[in-house]
Every structure is written in C-alpha cells, then in structure tokens.
Design a protein around this nucleic acid. Structure first.
Lengths: 220, 220
DNA sequence: TTAGTGTTTTAGTCTTGGCTAAAAATATGA
DNA sequence: TCATATTTTTAGCCAAGACTAAAACACTAA
C-alpha cells in the first residue's frame, strides 16, 4: 500500500502529536498542526484508516498503528538524512534546511536513501540534534561485524572502520573500498586469515587479516 | 508565475519535441511523449498558453516561447545536475539514475541547485554525455557524430547514446563500453555496416550498424 | 435530564490532472 | 470540389485534497 505525499505528511504530523505513537490525537489538533481545517482532516483520517496506518473511531480521535509508526519513521528518517546532507555537504545553515528537506523527504527510492546514508557515514543525529531512525525504523539495531568475522559467500555492506586514521582511509580509497560499498566474501585463507572480497559486484580485493579486522560491515 | 510539476513535465516534453525550441509540436506528439491522451493535452496546452510559456493556436500545435525555453532549460539543468550527483557521489550506475532524477528535478530551491552545482564542481555534461545548461540556460554542445559515421582509423571518445533505454545501457556495460571511453575505428564491413572498435586501447569490440548508430562520439 | 457549547462529521463546491465519447476542424485524395 | 479520414477540441465525469456551511455528536453544568 503506497501513501501519497499528503498522506505521508498527515501521518508524520499524527506521529509527532501522539508522542511516539502512544497517545490518541484529536482531529482539531491535527488540523492545527497541518494548518488546515478540521473538515479536511476528517476526510483524510478516513483514508488513512482505510489504509490501516491509523485506527480511526469517528468522534474519538486516532491512534497510529504499528504499520503507521513504521511509515512515519521512514519519512522522518529521510527528512533528517537530507538535512544532514544539506548542512554537511552543501553548506546550508541549520535553520535553512527544513523547507527543502520537507520536499526531498518524499522522493521515492529506497536505494537512494541507503546510498545517501552511506555517503553521509550513517549519521545518528540530524543538524538539530534529533535522532535519525535506522532502516528498520528505530526498532532493530544493526549488528556490525568485522570483515574477518564474516564467512565465505556472505554479503553485506561496509558501514565503518575501527581505525579511521588518514593512512588507513587513504589505503581504502586507493584499493577502491569505501563506506557504503556492497561487498561479498569470495575466499578466506586458513593459513594467514587473509581474504578475497568482491566490491560492488565488480572489483576483487585481497586484504590481510589485519585490514579485514579494521573494516566493519552489516550483513544483508 | 510558478509552474506545477505536471506543467514542468509537459514543458520539458514540448522543448525536447521541438528540437530546442525551433519546430512546432502537435497535440498528438505531446500525448505520445507524455503517455497520455490528446484530450488531456489540449487542456494542458490551454493552461501553458495562459501562462505564456508556449504560443498555442488551436488545431495548429504549439511553439515554445522564450520564457518557456528558459523554464524548460532550468528543469533540464536540474535533472542533469542530479544525475551527476547520483553517479559521482552515490555510486549509482548511469542506467539507474533517470527515474530518481525525474523526481528530484522538481524540488523548488534555487539555492539548492546553486550549491549542488558548486559541490559537483560545475560539471558541463551529465553521465550520458548530454550538456548541462548553465544558470542562464546557455548550452555548450560538443559536435557529436554517430559511430557508424566515423571512418576507419579515426579516434574519439564516447560521449552519449541516442537510445538511452535501460536495455541498451545494460548491453553497453556488458560489452565494456561506457561514456568517456576512448575508441578507435579498426574496421567497417561494407556489406552490413558492422564495425570493429578498439576500446581504451585494449578491448576489441564488434558491433552491428544499428548499435553503432546509437552511440555518439566526439572526434579527437 | 436537558440545554448549551465546543468538536467532529457530512454535504456540497472548487481546482488540478486525468479519462471517454462525441463533435468540430483540418487534411487528403478522387 | 466533395467525401472521407485524421487530428484536435469540447463536454462531461472521476479522484485527490482543499474549502464553507450545516448537521450530528459528546461533554458539561444546571
């Protein structure tokens, strides 16, 4: 079930008003938050109820459902990642980013958001200090493991390095690995623990155990 | 006068169909390009005419105005800048960017585009080799010719493709050709127009005349 | 219990951008 | 030139998301 831009914005407002999906929210409150009229809100609540992202009892306000919470958190995640991008990469001031992020958050492309997240180095907070939900909507934490702990044929994505010295980052860059790269373990040598890694489905990389132990990945 | 997303898309289509604002464009052609019905197009042409971005004479098709051309080029500029961003910064493949750029191009923020341009180092061409109009809508085109128009022993560089369908881009990728590849014509078969191309001074590639006609290059 | 007050919903309207069916205008060819 | 074919427009309808005005409901206080 896909949501329109307007529906996404309502859901986000309801999520915020409900204090993280705990409280009931009234039609009037939503109208105030959305700067619209209660009559328009009633209409929209019916639609959101039909799509089962909220529980709607006429005259008694709404509660957000689990599915709705997930959707809202995804939108919030996108909004905050774009804010980080605008501030860190495009030199926007922290008070200039909201309007633009409000538009950018509705771009539909899971791949785009994954890559953006990698590109920004998996930030945990936006420029206003608000936390950024992870891919799964805050709930699941991603277990990270060092490359040398991965088994042959396992796939994943590089998310961090332990030693982020300039020298090591330079080395990574030189061999064509980077934060966000998709990787697959092709081979592990028993003798010295060195590994053969497929990067982005094209480049093959050989690395010592020491290097592998320095690179953190999530499995996929 | 602001344009809606739909209006921007129509204007872009009309600009493309009119070969850079020179030819008249028929209602039917616009309908085909936009994958919509002529009746819907008539309606939209009336609106675009009212906003003076096109000159609309009923039953005689439309011509784009100076103002319309400027608007269309601004949209194209945004589209191509985003494509560069996706490929250079987010490691998208050049055949994955179009759909997402189609959404991103409608984000309204002149500051965003200025900053993006500067962040990308003021690129002149997008990943498909198409020129990026500057802030004022000026385009610096390179003289390009199709591979099948090149003679034996001529050298050059691939800069664009005519048919940028995912299927064709995928094919190119598979055979090891890409935008920016340096090429040299080793042989042309009189009988069927097929060609033998040296890519990057190492790989030799055989291609039919149809494929060659689809690949644009600049001579060097 | 009932009247009053504020909240919420319904009903009907508007705009945008689609659609189909039918009418009108233009183009073509005998 | 006139009939036919093609293109384009008009007219009327639909859905989304807004609005206003009016009706329905819930809550409170006498």
């Amino acid at each position: 079930m896909t949501l329109t831009t307007a529906e996404e914005n309502y859901l986000k407002a309801i999520y915020h008003l409900s204090d993280g999906a705990t409280k009931s929210v009234s039609t009037n409150d939503v109208a105030a938050e959305m700067k619209t009229k209660p009559a328009s809100v009633s209409d929209m609540l019916r639609k959101l109820g039909d799509k089962e992202v909220i529980e709607y009892r006429k005259y008694y306000g709404v509660n957000i459902t689990e599915e709705g919470k997930k959707r809202a958190l995804q939108t919030i995640r996108k909004h905050r990642l774009w804010e980080v991008f605008l501030v860190e990469k495009l030199q926007f001031a922290w008070d200039e980013v909201h309007e633009v992020a409000e538009e950018l958050e509705h771009i539909q492309s899971p791949l785009l958001i994954q890559r953006l997240d990698s590109y920004l180095n998996f930030p945990k907070f936006d420029p206003h200090g608000d936390p950024i939900p992870d891919e799964y909507g805050d709930v699941r934490a991603r277990p990270r493991l060092a490359l040398n702990e991965m088994d042959i044929d396992q796939s994943g994505q590089i998310v961090a390095v332990k030693d982020s010295s300039a020298a090591f980052l330079k080395y990574l860059d030189k061999v064509g690995a980077y934060i966000g790269a998709r990787i697959k373990v092709l081979d592990k040598v028993e003798f010295d623990g060195s590994m053969e890694i497929l990067v982005d489905q094209k480049k093959t990389l050989f690395m010592s155990k020491d290097v592998a132990a320095n690179i953190l990945a999530i499995q996929s």
